[in-house]
Design a binder for these strands. Structure first.
Lengths: 138, 138
DNA sequence: CACAAATTGTTTGATACTCAAATAATATTT
DNA sequence: AAATATTATTTGAGTATCAAACAATTTGTG
C-alpha cells in the first residue's frame, strides 16, 4: 500500500474514532451532537444571528430553529432581538451554556493531550503545522 | 494561547471541515452519511454478521437493521444466511456497492492528496506517524 | 437429554435531525 | 408606494437513533 493510501486511511480512522468519542461524551450530558456543535460554534463567536449560525454550521435555518428551541428550553442559549434589524434574532450562550461549552472544550483538550502524550514536542510542532496548512487548503 | 490549545482547535476545525465535505460528497450520490459509513466498514472486511457490523459502527443492531434494509433496496448490499449459525445473517457488498465504496475512497484519497500537496514529504511522514500513534492510543 | 439462559436479528414506539417549500414579518430596491 | 429580497418560523416527509419487547436459535446446566 502506498503512502497516500496509508495517510488517507489513518485520517479516516482518526475521524471515526473522534466521532465516536464525541458521541459518547456528549450523550452523557443529556444533549445531542448537533446541539453541542451549536454551543461550540457560539462559543467562538457570540452573539450570532440565526442565519449566520446556520451558515457556520452548514445547516438550514429551518433545522436551526428547532435546534435552538431545544437548547433554549434546556437553558443553554437565549434569543435576543437584533438592535437594527427586526427580522433578525441574536442567539447567545447563557451562563449554563458557557459552562457546558467550556467543560466540553476542556475534555477535548485533555483527549488531545493524552493522545499525543507519547509524541515528541518537535513532532507535535510538525503535526500542528500540517494540520494548519490542511485547514487553510480546505 | 498555548500549544495544546492551538492543536486542539486545529483538530476540531479539521474534523468539522472533513465532516462537511463528506456530507456534500455523499449527498450527491443519493445516499446518506450513515449508509456510506456502512459501505466503508464493509469495504475493509467482508462479509460481516449484523452484530459485528453494528459493533464496528458503534450503533445498535436495531438501527443497523433499517440501515441495511435501505442499502439492500438500493442494491448496494445483500444479506446471506450464515453457514453454521442460523441466528446470524451475513452482509456483503454487491458489485454496485463495491463500486460506490471504491469511488468514495478514491475521492477521499484525492482530497487528502490535494490538502497535503503543499507539505514536504518529510513533514507528511511525521504527520502520518503522529496520526498512527494517536489512533493506537485512542 | 431437557430445560434454562444467552445470543442474534427484527420490530415497535419515541425522540431528534434534516431538508425543501410555504409563510409571515421586516428591509431594501426601484 | 410597490415590488423584490431577506430573515426566521412552520409544515410535511424521510432518515437515524435508542431502548425495550420479541422470535428464532444456540449454548450451558442440572
Amino acid at each position: 500500500m502506498n503512502f497516500l493510501n496509508k495517510l488517507n486511511h489513518s485520517v479516516i480512522e482518526f475521524y471515526e474514532k473522534l466521532s465516536s468519542w464525541e458521541n459518547d461524551i456528549v450523550y452523557g450530558k443529556g444533549i445531542t451532537l448537533p446541539q453541542m456543535h451549536t454551543l461550540e460554534v457560539l462559543g467562538s463567536q457570540q452573539p450570532m444571528r440565526m442565519k449566520e449560525l446556520a451558515q457556520g454550521m452548514g445547516i438550514t435555518t429551518g433545522t436551526l430553529t428547532v435546534l435552538v428551541d431545544r437548547l433554549e428550553s434546556k437553558g443553554f442559549v437565549c434569543r435576543k432581538p437584533h438592535d437594527s434589524d427586526r427580522r433578525s434574532i441574536l442567539v447567545e450562550l447563557t451562563e449554563s451554556g458557557e459552562a457546558m461549552f467550556a467543560e466540553h472544550d476542556r475534555l477535548h483538550l485533555r483527549l488531545i493531550e493524552e493522545l499525543t502524550s507519547e509524541i515528541s514536542d518537535s513532532e507535535r510542532e510538525v503535526f500542528l503545522s500540517c494540520l494548519e496548512k490542511m485547514n487553510k487548503a480546505f
